[in-house]
Design a binder for these strands. Structure first.
Lengths: 201, 201
DNA sequence: GGTTCTAGAACC
DNA sequence: GGTTCTAGAACC
């Protein structure tokens, strides 16, 4: 992919380290990594390269991790630890794309497309409503965790059934009571009051 | 801690790389790491050290990770990747014990105590019956996962209460029915059959 | 069992 | 949000 026409100008207007971010700017890690590659462009000519954009410009390669860690990292970050750098790349969703080289790629990390950096976000805060431990449990719902819930739901269903049955029986007895009372009422009214009839309620 | 008296002899009898393991021997990773330290002892004198036992002899320090990765690792392992080496150390339960140095320790990894190596085991196969995702869910039971169960249990409790209430009402109506029937029976028997009395059931 | 890539979690 | 230490998981 060819860089846009403003690519050369863009380098001049790139955020420098320590510059206060007046506008919405990408995470420092991304800007700094981009800076490293832009500024290494010149250094490549007169020596063996430490780090550079890959051929396609859609990723980069750390050709010399040792040199990169000792020289480049402390210049841009607060450490000289290559694995910390890799950890950050993973946090932002970069993928290692070659088995024999330290080559990393991200869809939005391309030579000449600094403005795409702000579209790169940390992977951490993605499934906030559905974190990893829930994913894991989701997979095992049917086995362990939902076992209890399943028992409870079963019990629940049975209780509802019992309730319905009881309500139906109750309705039956209420109807029956009405009929009995009617019946009794007729019986009594047609023969007058009887001392032998007990109190009902 | 001073090494045992047999320490010097022990080095001579240590397992060499490629030697066939006739007896139960420690994992290759541990033997090789131990070898590296033993054999580096001599190299330390005539140059800056790359890796060595720590002062106490209860751990070791990789003084120069870059040199260590490029020179030592390929000599003993099938890679030159420092993070792979560290991953193995963690697998076997080593801890990084200094914040500014690549110093690692393990209770059973001590200068002069090669025979302790076979007591070091992989951490991997420990909680097979209770893996991490269950641990995680365990910690969050009370918040999310048991939330559903809590709702179900609450519903359950209410259903039981309703059931009891319905059963009591039902018992009341059954008693009432008996009394009404008795009453009606007396009423009828004392006056003979009446055509006006409707069917009850 | 070893190597690689990535992520979790604690701490800063 | 960055840095560090450690672990999970896939692949070899």
């Amino acid at each position: 992919m060819a860089p846009p026409t403003g690519a050369l100008l863009e380098r001049g207007t790139s955020l420098k380290i320590g510059q206060s971010p007046r506008t919405k700017c990408p995470p420092p890690f991304l800007s700094k990594t981009y800076d490293i590659l832009e500024e290494e462009e010149e250094a490549i000519a007169n020596g063996q390269r430490i780090v550079s954009w890959n051929y396609e410009g859609n990723g980069f390669v750390v050709w010399n991790p040792a040199e990169f860690s000792e020289v480049m990292l402390p210049r841009y970050f607060k450490h000289n630890n290559f694995s910390s750098f890799v950890r950050q790349l993973n946090t932002y969703g970069f993928k290692k794309t070659a088995s024999k080289r330290w080559e990393f790629q991200h869809d939005k990390f391309r030579r000449g497309y600094r403005h795409l950096l702000h579209e790169i976000t940390r992977k951490k805060c993605e499934p906030s409503a559905f974190p990893a431990y829930l994913k894991a449990s989701e997979e095992h719902k049917s086995t362990t965790l939902e076992g209890n819930a399943r028992v409870l739901m079963e019990e629940n269903k049975n209780l509802r059934r019992e309730r319905l049955e009881l309500q139906m029986q109750l309705a039956h007895f209420k109807t029956l009571e009405i009929k009995l009372l009617e019946c009794l009422s007729q019986c009594i009214s047609s023969h007058g009051h009887q001392r032998k009839i007990p109190r009902l309620c």
